[in-house]
Amino acid sequence: MEHLIDIVLLGLLMITGFAIVRMKSLLAVAMLTSIYSLLSASLFVVLDAVDVALTEAAIGAGISTILMLATVALTRDEEKAPRHTPLLPLAVVTVTGAALIYGTLDMPHYGDPAAPVHQHAASAYLHDTPGEIGVPNVVTSVLASYRGYDTLGEVTVIFTAGAGVLALLGYRTRRRNIQGPGIRKLVVLRVIAKLFFPLILLFALYVLFHGDYGPGGGFQAGVIFATGFILYALAFGLGNAQRVIHHPLLRIMAAVGVLIYAAVGIEGILLGGKFLEYGVLADDPVTGQHLGIMLIELGVGITVAAVMLIIYYGFVSRQD
């Protein structure tokens, strides 16, 4: 049964991918990309990667699509045909693909429990997490503690993107609320947005603090939090949204999140441990781990939410 779903989803992904190559309308391509991302999120669920699925759905299908649509709205919608016949690209792609397929021939089989990936480090994570970290979600324990440094790098990447969009697109604060034409006038949309706005924020907090037990964590929570505000901005106009969270505050939030994360790490050094050693944060190492994971997830959430909104404001404020 699982194999069947797997094959169907992969087939749909292929169809979507080819459609993206063929389509000339960039609006349609952006929507298809969103579908592609959503399909891969579903595939991740089938492949047991629930955390990844949640992230892909929120980031790939959600925020990325919004950015693509915003860009398509600013550029021309139709794609011109390439000037050259794509013989060289075709050759490059064929060679690369052939090399990869050649490489698969010695790979362990798909789903094989005896494959090397499942033997070495991974089995230790699964075995030791309950005793050393004490959270049921092993993805969270690896993400936040065993490989917490990668995650610090990841927050820094997001922060870099925020700083980059700030440098490239800047921001304009709207004093008046410009009522553009289109969907902003819709009463139904406004009522629903008002109804759902607090619920989305609540859900973000749930995802943030439930990440130890189920799928979720700082990244997903931050993106969902930002999505709530994006919905608000869509329904009530950018000016009103900027009145709720204005740009200087976003800068501070983006910086503070990274600083919280790094501060937890440096606190480990100051208490006589290594960088990012959470065990020394409390008397009991497991409590220390809990505390550390909680704090860094909070930092991640704050930075991600702030950067998502900086990026969104940046793209939308170019719209006039």
Binding site: T55, G60, M68, A70, V139, V142, T151, I158, F219
Partner: peptide, 25 residues
């Protein structure tokens, strides 16, 4: 299932978003 690739891909998804945002900007 093995949790490590999931962690790596969580990171990589965020990297891909950062690239997409900068590229589109």
């Amino acid at each position: 299932s093995n949790p490590l690739p999931h962690v790596l891909i969580l990171t990589a998804i965020v990297v891909s978003l950062a690239t997409t945002a900068l590229g589109l900007a």
